[in-house]
């Protein structure tokens, strides 16, 4: 190693010669070996196996039976499969779109209004309150709300009775007509703090002169919001939308804890549907097909987001 050191010096002093650069880079491969081994065992092989299994009928024991595209054909005609993706869209609304929209307004209000009129401490105390649900493991958030919404002893129905709205009391998670809406509400509560914190951090790098200029031009708060705040933190908005959309597509914990996909199929999502096929129904091939489709959708969504982001910037 020490022998190589003097060779580096002229390379950086003048223009680097390609041969030397290559030799310098070659030795660094060693540092990738531990990752390569683990990565192969934990990600690449299992993922390829999953794709392979999706072309078979297999109960998890014995030899898988090759069935070609049968599982995928069956998926297309499976009501539960389509329902699970519809619920995914609802959860994207609840976990990505609503929190982003609310988060933008809240972050701008805290940063540009509360922070200036009532001091930074008030703003950061409110921010901490909105963020607190985010620190919970999502399964624990599910336990908390399973308790809050319990049909016989849940606190939410008691609150409604206490304020004279007892007629609105519901079996929030047990009624197939409103179970999905209840889960959506819980996820908004859970997610909201994330965009608020990210957007407030983003607003700190916006040049205050932009706001002052807009104020002097007589722009209202909403005009400043639309024409200064939103365009200035567009990169943060993209990151939040992307990460939250992926999280919504993958959602499993809250569904498992709150509803187990029910009542009936009212809140089933692809990840829980594949889990059921893997571990409850022993339809491993079919479960793998669901998981593969979910993986493809997530990769496509990620690429689309990154493309749009590149074009905008």
């Amino acid at each position: 190693m020490a022998v190589q050191a003097p060779a580096t010096r002229p390379a950086t002093a003048g223009t680097p010669e390609p041969v030397q650069r290559f030799r310098m880079g070659a030795g660094y491969w060693v540092y990738l070996i531990p990752s390569a081994v683990l990565f192969l065992a934990v990600v690449i092989v299992p993922f390829l196996m999953n794709i392979g299994i999706s072309f078979t009928r297999w109960s998890g024991v014995g030899t898988p039976k090759w069935t070609g595209l049968d599982n995928y054909k069956r998926l297309l005609g499976d009501q539960t499969f389509w329902a699970s993706f519809q619920h995914n869209v609802a959860l994207i609304v609840a976990m990505a779109i609503l929190p982003t929209m609310l988060g933008l307004v809240l972050a701008a209000a805290l940063f540009d209004y509360i922070g200036k009129k009532f001091g930074a401490r008030t703003a950061s105390a409110l921010r901490a309150a909105y963020y607190l649900p985010q620190v919970l493991p999502v399964a624990v958030a599910g336990v908390v709300w399973g308790w809050m919404l319990h049909p016989s002893y849940g606190a939410l129905n008691e609150v409604l009775k206490a304020v004279g709205l007892g007629s609105l009391a519901q079996n929030w998670l047990g009624d197939p007509d409103i179970a999905l809406a209840s889960v959506m509400g819980i996820m908004v509560w859970f997610q909201l703090g994330y965009p608020v914190v990210i957007f407030m951090a983003g607003l700190q790098r916006v040049d205050p002169a932009l706001y002052e200029a807009a104020e002097l031009d007589g722009a209202s708060w909403w005009q400043r919001f639309w024409h200064v705040t939103v365009p200035q933190i567009r990169p943060e908005i993209f990151v939040v939308l992307l990460t939250c959309t992926i999280a919504a597509l993958k959602v499993f914990g809250p569904i498992f804890v709150l509803t187990r996909g029910g009542p009936g199929k009212a809140t089933i999502v692809p990840s829980y549907f594949s889990y059921q096929n893997f571990f409850e129904k022993s339809n491993v091939g079919y479960g793998s097909a669901i998981a593969t489709v979910l993986a493809i959708i997530i990769v496509i969504v990620t690429f689309l987001f990154l493309r749009v982001q590149e074009r905008k910037s």
């Binding site: 196996m49 889990y275 998981a291």
Partner: peptide, 11 residues
């Protein structure tokens, strides 16, 4: 970004 569901059974 891969969902863990797509690795779970083989793992």
């Amino acid at each position: 970004t891969l969902p863990q569901e797509a690795l779970a059974y083989p793992l």
